[in-house]
Amino acid sequence: MTHLAELPAPLALLAAALVLAGAFLSLAGSFGLLRMRTFYDRLHAPTIATSMGISCVLLASMLVFTALQSRLVIHELLVGALVVLTTPVTLMLVARAALHRDRLEKSPAVPRAARPEPAEEPAE
């Protein structure tokens, strides 16, 4: 860990705060995945980790490497862009697959179509 000693103190503290915040948010997202009750509730928790959790850790990494190599290091942006752009796509795909499966099983918990069903149909 000796290379970290070369960091100026304010930068080191900022990087420490960012790493801690990112790890905490990722933990919160994963914990939500564990804790929520239904699949559709669980779908919301991971986006904490994929939006702010990863941004904080990547920002810390950029800070540390830029300071250590004394030149602008921004290749972390690649990972960031990749994750930020692809996560909505994958989550949407899985959500649609889950909806499709639930509908095939005629689960009463999910709506039958994107269009709202006419309210208060008279019972047959």
């Binding site: 904490i48 909505p88 959500a95 179509a113 994107a114 269009r115």
Partner: peptide, 20 residues
Amino acid sequence: LTATPGTAWLEFDAEEGWLL
């Protein structure tokens, strides 16, 4: 909508423009 925690896009009905 999907990237924002708290909302998730599920389905869009292109004919009548309903979003679920």
